Structures are given as C-alpha cells and as structure tokens.
Simulated scan of single mutants.
Amino acid sequence: MTVDDLTAAITDMYRSLGDRAAFDARLHPDLTIWESDSPELLSGLPALDDLRDRRAAARGPAEAPTSVAPEGFRAESWDDTGLVRYVLRARYATGRPDDCFRVTDVLRRDGRDWRIVHHHAEALR
C-alpha cells in the first residue's frame, strides 16, 4: 500500500457523502473525532451520528453544500498506519462563500482497506 492508497481512500469517502453507510465504511467504529463545532472529543460512530443529526436540524436543506471535496493532500504511511492532512472545501449553489476546514486523519489498515481511527477538523475563518 502506498500514500496514493491513503489519498484515494479519503477522496472515495467524500465522493460517497450523502450515503451514510458507504461513507462510514471508511471509518473505524471506535474512531475519535475533534470537530470545530463540538466542544468535546467525540468517540465512536453513534457520537458522530448525533453530531450529524444536530447539524442537519440546525440548517435547512437549501443550505446544504453542493459539493464537499478534499484538496492539497500531504500523506505518509508506516506499515499499517497512515497520516493524511488536507483542506476540505464545501461549496454552495446559493453564492454563500465556501467553508474550508484544515483536516488531519489517522488511518489504520484493516485487512486491505484503510479506515480512519482519528479525525481532527478545524474550521478556517
């Protein structure tokens, strides 16, 4: 496995955004998560689902981004551990300015696939 496999895993995950099962297939069930809009460290997929549901309730469907894509990858791996840093950009059809996040993901190889075990995203203002 190469660093290209790591960046492909992240890119594929964001391509499946909107299909929660496909997106979550790239996440370890016990992952930990730091997010700008959550004051505490989240642990596990149920905590992520709760954050997703709160976000959806706070915004209307018209405010949903038209695309979300990672860019500017820097990645490296050691055996079954990978580290990927990138900017995540959300674009909107309404003319609203893009949302950008500085992201670091730690991945572990699970069989043949890479799965995120820790995700840290910070909103850029």
Rank of each mutant, 00 (worst) to 15 (best):
I33E: 01
L48P: 09
A47G: 11
A90I: 00
A47R: 02
W34F: 13
R59F: 08
Y86M: 00
L41F: 08
D80Q: 04
L41A: 12
P61V: 02
S38Y: 09
V117G: 04
L42H: 12
D30P: 07
R108W: 10
Y86W: 00
R96P: 05
R55V: 10
P39G: 05
L51V: 12
T32N: 08
E35Q: 15
L17H: 07
A69Q: 01
E40T: 15
C100M: 04
G18Q: 08
I116H: 02
E35M: 13
S36G: 14
L31C: 13
T104G: 08
H28C: 11
D99N: 08
A25C: 06
D4P: 02
R54G: 06
W114Q: 03
L48D: 06
Y92L: 02
L17F: 04
V103I: 06
I33M: 09
T94H: 08
S43H: 15
A123K: 08
D37R: 12
S38D: 10
T7C: 08
S43I: 13
H120S: 05
E122G: 15
A47E: 12
F101R: 04
R85N: 05
R55Q: 08
D12S: 10
V84T: 00
D80W: 00
R59P: 03
G72P: 01
W34E: 10
D4W: 04
F101K: 04
A9P: 01
D99F: 03
L107C: 02
T66D: 08
V117L: 11
Y14K: 02
L45K: 10
V84F: 00
S36H: 14
R55T: 13
R109Q: 07
G18I: 08
D49T: 13
G44R: 10
R115G: 05
A21V: 13
R91A: 01
V3T: 14
L83N: 01
R15A: 02
R15N: 06
R96Q: 14
P46G: 09
H28A: 11
V87D: 00
D49Q: 15
E40R: 14
R52W: 11
D79S: 09
E122F: 13
G111V: 09
Y86R: 01
R15I: 03
L48S: 14
T104Q: 09
R112H: 12
A62S: 09
T7I: 12
R102Q: 06
S77T: 06
G60L: 05
G111T: 07
P97I: 05
P29W: 06
R102C: 05
L83I: 04
D98P: 00
D5I: 02
D19F: 14
R74W: 04
V3H: 04
A62P: 02
R54V: 11
A8H: 03
